[in-house]
Design a protein around this nucleic acid. Sequence first.
DNA 1: AATGCTACTGGACCGCTGGTCCAGTTGTCG
DNA 2: CGACAACTGGACCAGCGGTCCAGTAGCATT
Lengths: 197, 197
Amino acid sequence: MTEPERLRADAVRNRTAILRATEELLTRHHPQQISMEQVAAAAGVGKGTVFHRFGSRYGLMRALMQERAQDLEIAINTGPPPLGQGAPPRVRLLAFLTAVVELVARNKGLLAALGPAAPVTAAPEQEPREAHPVYRSWHGHISQLVHQQRPDLDADMLAHVLLATLHSEPILNALERGDGNRLDRTLRDLVTGLMPE
Amino acid sequence: MTEPERLRADAVRNRTAILRATEELLTRHHPQQISMEQVAAAAGVGKGTVFHRFGSRYGLMRALMQERAQDLEIAINTGPPPLGQGAPPRVRLLAFLTAVVELVARNKGLLAALGPAAPVTAAPEQEPREAHPVYRSWHGHISQLVHQQRPDLDADMLAHVLLATLHSEPILNALERGDGNRLDRTLRDLVTGLMPE
DNA sequence: AATGCTACTGGACCGCTGGTCCAGTTGTCG
DNA sequence: CGACAACTGGACCAGCGGTCCAGTAGCATT
């Protein structure tokens, strides 16, 4: 994927300090209330450092998200069933959805921060706007699994619909209240309706 | 509902001018790129007038959304089947989803503007944050219909999941490209899976 | 038609934000 | 150990949402 890109020792130290500080702030505030200056202060660095490393608010959030999603990514690609290869598509999809819901529940505001925070700046008239890598990966995984078992469905759109769940304010609020299992059950019901045993 | 609240003639004129200008700007720019100053300028009024009437960016978007959703609201409550009362829940739900998709497709960025634009200001630590009235209404309608036919399901959460669709950037992009019928079909497939004839 | 009351108007203004800039510092490598 | 580039941080900038209030103009009452 992306090469490790050799960084200087202090740069590495500050990078993780910034990520940890952001993480910590996100557990206590809604993402839109967190300013980059706050992040810098909480990490004990200057604002310039934050932007030099991450480029923008969006870049920071994306990096954090990628870090959080790494374990799941590995489990899917090289881990054992039911998440990894080996189980039937339906089972893998259900396992994946459960894992994603759990991941998002543990990282409340992060997804919310990523959605709207997409490259809104600069270019005055801009095309569709690429989704961030984690979304792309998840979408690809879901649509592939759906397609394997139900090639007659619009797997691409269905994957978007399932993932849309995680960008919804009311649902994120529900997750914050600990209703993760309700969401998980509902998604299972939906998938089971389309992909019976 | 809300009383008409007698307004002065010039106030009415400016109110509609602002709404039309916003509408027009939304067709050409992403909601986050539109500033309140632009809206004011496009409507030919001062910024103070916009805020005096709508209170905040969120208030403006909400008002516009309510205006757009009014017809659908009436069709549901007092119109003929399949949208109005009379048809079986499953049919009413499918008709409603089709209508909503069509409504959102015609008003691209509006939903996107409402989600993130919710009361983020002021209060430093804020509870769940109420959804806007249109969302509330749609959610209530869907969950009621689901409950009528499948009382065993978590109708509340399912309604949130179905509506989450409309807050998703990738899906809004798809709608912008004219893929409304794909989304409609996918939602029909999902609902039909849970609510067979 | 004139008058007074008050809702409405609009632009100067405020605090704060994301992002830029660059002079100074500090790791790294030959 | 020297030199060079990568990194640092805080002053700085343009633009934002929102406030304020002196001035204006619609409406009721006569």
